[in-house]
Design a protein around this nucleic acid. Structure first.
Lengths: 339, 339
DNA sequence: AGCCCGCGTGAAAACGTTTACGTTGGCGCC
DNA sequence: GGCGCCAACGTAAACGTTTTCACGCGGGCT
């Protein structure tokens, strides 16, 4: 017993396939009685329209693709969660594809998604304007996440990396820490470079005489752990450390603990993102909160809009706000937690 | 300029569409010279076969669907990561759908994936044998993850929840802790109940005189935090706590810290899963390691096999092994970490 | 009473592939 | 030199929808 087709339903309901299609999709053009009969027949036969056939004629897949980096850590978990929730709400399916190391892999991923999706959500360091123009059909709606690509050609949704960094560094300085070091993110990563820019700018503005101190990281806990040890080994330890994301902050915290350095008494620490575990490490991590799931939701909703009204929406670059969340690792005055 | 179709390529290469199809897909039936010409034409036109049209005739989507619970926490992040990696390796796309609260939602999700996927990976408490028989076409390959469904009807891949629990409880007892409490997972969850079963069995076997002590949780950090406080409030505190997953263990650890209870000196603690952050909390969390990404990979590879050889593979229930990872929270003798 | 309009319905084209089946041409074999 | 066979290639059907168009028919208008 192969799956029932629209023809079977038509025969069962003693109407033409056209009427079946109309009854099931478009509201109009069918008498209430026949619609009833058709629905009953469809029900009886457990009819489910063949998605591919529909895509073929409709040119709509009701699917959006998400191009992501290696899905490591809670950031992406939350991001996908937000996207997926919103997608379900919009009646869209979600096709994910991650871990394209090089531009070539990313290009392959984009190409293989061609025709399977109505639009693309892209979060990738490898992707710039040239890449997009080379690999994407003009018509395919795209929303870029945390991308350096700017200008009026593409829809972009960013986290306020720069603003968040400035605010956090400022907060650390205000809390009385004279020297603030940065554990930077991977080179070439947009978020990382923006956060570093914020750090440098805030230091220049609010602590112009303090020495800058930057140690490399790659957004993983392990790199944060290594960076923590590296900072401790330096001739003059900083009084505070700002990690460019929470995972590195968590790794760094572990390094400090291993070395017997107290946080925040000996060294203060802050992260970026406010991933769920941030509040459960000890001491609880002060961080720059960005509502990651909301970020994903917003991105998808924006994409859905663009898909719905193609060309109509003029490309815009939105930026998602942040909050400074003061917990236990950054020392100084601590207002009550704003949950 | 709409996308190029196979006809355009045929015209450009001065052959029929059939030859184009043969040249690009099947190896045989075309002269080397014409194949060359066709490839050149396809290249020139940037031809990408229309996925839907191909699906329609081929009845293969080259896509697998993953039905998951609410994607909260690192467990799912890792799981999806493993699945996605393996999918790419197999040349398959990944359609994810999460957060089906009730059976009705799950059914809707399954139905809407009908025809869009060649097979399904299902990890859901709501799904049992009856559900599957009611909502799935017989022909659709399925691999069940961590499912109570057994018997020869379905392919199942499980984590050794029971074995891991027994081993960890045994380890805690061997380390000298006389009383071990359990922070249980959500009711109705298969992993949760199996882990609880393991706890009870191990206690009965290795500490038959010790009182059992179980407090409810739901696999989130927050529930672990609450459970931690609840345990401390009890008349007689346990000497060790076994949390049914790492997230709850992390939450519980935070609760103990907040209450000034030292781990492991005052109370030992262990978790389950070995999510990435487990080693970065302080003290580092002892836990039952299951290689989550591998779990996802294995599941996908199994599904790919079933898809490739339909009906041929006889349903089997595999169980993934575990390791006890002794870090700092469980006290007692601590061998060097086996990374 | 005739006309036209609109509504419900059916027939058929179209979407872009794959593939079964013919058709050609060239070549070896008798 | 004719016969048949095989390889290369073309023709057309098929996949399951949606949608356009035509058709018939009833009723309100002039």
């Amino acid at each position: 017993m192969a799956a029932a087709t629209i023809k079977d339903v038509a025969r069962e309901a003693r109407v033409s396939v056209a009427s079946v299609s109309r009854a099931l999709n478009g509201g109009g053009g069918v008498t209430a009685a026949t619609r009833e009969r058709i629905h009953a027949a469809a029900e009886r036969l457990q009819y489910i329209p063949h998605a591919a056939a529909r895509m073929l004629i409709t040119r709509r897949t009701h699917t959006i693709g998400a191009l992501l980096p290696d899905l490591y850590g809670e950031f992406f978990s939350e991001l996908i969660r937000g996207i997926d929730l919103a997608a379900r709400a919009c009646g869209l399916h979600l096709l994910v594809s991650s871990s394209h190391g090089g531009a070539a892999e990313a290009a392959a991923a984009v190409r293989s998604m061609q025709g399977r999706v109505d639009g693309l959500l892209i979060l990738s360091e490898r992707v710039d304007a040239a890449f997009l123009r080379a690999n994407l059909p003009k018509a395919l709606p795209v929303v870029l996440l945390n991308s350096a690509v700017s200008g009026p050609a593409f829809h972009v949704l960013n986290i306020d990396n720069h603003g968040g960094s400035v605010a956090m560094v400022q907060h650390l300085l205000r809390a009385g820490h004279r020297s603030v070091a940065l554990i930077a993110g991977p080179a070439g990563n947009f978020d990382a470079s923006e956060r570093e820019r914020g750090y440098r700018e805030a230091m220049a503005r609010y602590a112009p005489r303090a020495a800058l101190s930057v140690v490399a990281g790659d957004f993983t806990e392990e790199s944060g752990y290594r960076a923590g040890h590296e900072l401790l080994a330096r001739a003059k330890r900083p009084r505070a450390v700002f990690a460019a994301n929470d995972m590195m902050a968590v790794g760094c915290l572990a390094a400090f603990k291993d070395a017997g350095v107290r946080v925040p008494e000996d060294i203060a620490l802050a992260g970026f993102d406010d991933i769920p575990i941030a509040r459960y490490v000890t001491p609880a991590l002060s961080t720059v909160r960005v509502r990651i799931a909301d970020f994903g939701r917003l991105a998808l909703e924006r994409l859905a809009q663009v898909i719905e009204h193609p060309g109509q929406e003029s490309p815009s670059a939105d930026t998602l706000g942040f909050e400074i969340v003061v917990r236990d690792t950054c020392g100084g005055i601590k207002p009550e937690e704003n949950s």
